[in-house]
Every structure is written in structure tokens, then in C-alpha cells.
Computed example of a mutant assay.
Amino acid sequence: MSRVVLQGLEFHARHGVYDTEGVLGARFVVDAELHYAFAGLTDHLSEAVNYAEVYAAIQEEVTVPRHQLIEVLTDRIARRVLRDQPRLAAVTVRVHKPFAPLPGVFRDVYAELRLNRDDL
């Protein structure tokens, strides 16, 4: 299956368990892999997945509602993108929280979910 990848979409949002996360917010980074058959596609946007629309949906899901868990946010993004884009066979979403409040040194924390259309 072919895919289009939106990688490193960065947003400021207020997700997290702690009150300070809701007040100050933090940087969240989203990757979305859009799986659909585009081999042989003509050069018309109407036949493809419009990834500008996908970006807008991800932006809204990340910046408008507040969730305690990035796992829930990841699920909401994946389901929204699949619902909004009927050409997609599957989507893989990763939500990174590089400044998660952990008591040690780390590079990244992220949740990843792959959903197929049949999973809706």
C-alpha cells in the first residue's frame, strides 16, 4: 500500500494530567501516515487525499479539545482523519510529547496508533 506522510506537524496545546500542563501548555508533534492506493492516479486533486484538509483536521483535534492522555488524542486524530477522508484505507498517527513531565533525561515520548477503515 502506498502512503503520503505528514511528518513533524507542531502545535502548542494543553494536554496532560497535571494542572500546570493545562495552564502553560507544551509542544506536541504529530506524524500522520495516510495509506491509500495512488498508483496510476491522474494529476487531479479530486482523485487524491487532500492533505491540506488532513492538516486542518489534525490541527483542530490537537489545539481545541483538551485530553489528559496522548493515547486518547492519538485515537481521536486517527478516527477523525479516516472519517473525513473516504479514500484512505488506513492511517497511522503518532503524537509526540517531547517535553513530557518525566523525572529523567529522554529524547521523546509518543503514542502510535494504526487504524484501518474496518476499525471505525
Rank of each mutant, 00 (worst) to 15 (best):
P101M: 12
V5I: 15
A100K: 13
H35K: 00
Q59C: 11
A56Y: 03
E33K: 03
R76N: 02
Y18E: 14
L102R: 08
E71P: 01
V72R: 10
A32T: 05
I77D: 10
F11I: 00
Q59D: 11
I77C: 09
A89P: 05
R114E: 14
V23T: 14
L120C: 12
R83T: 14
Y51C: 01
G16T: 05
H35D: 03
L69C: 04
Q7Y: 04
A39L: 14
H67N: 10
V109G: 02
E33A: 13
V62L: 05
L45R: 06
V4D: 04
R76M: 00
R27C: 09
G16C: 02
D75S: 04
L73S: 03
V105W: 13
E47L: 11
N116L: 05
D108F: 12
L24Y: 05
R83F: 05
V30L: 09
L45Q: 04
P103G: 13
V29M: 01
T42W: 11
V109H: 02
H44A: 10
A89E: 15
S46M: 05
R76I: 00
E33L: 06
Y110H: 13
A111F: 10
L6Y: 06
N50F: 04
H67K: 06
L102T: 11
V30Y: 08
D75L: 03
A78P: 07
D84S: 10
V62P: 08
K97H: 10
F28M: 04
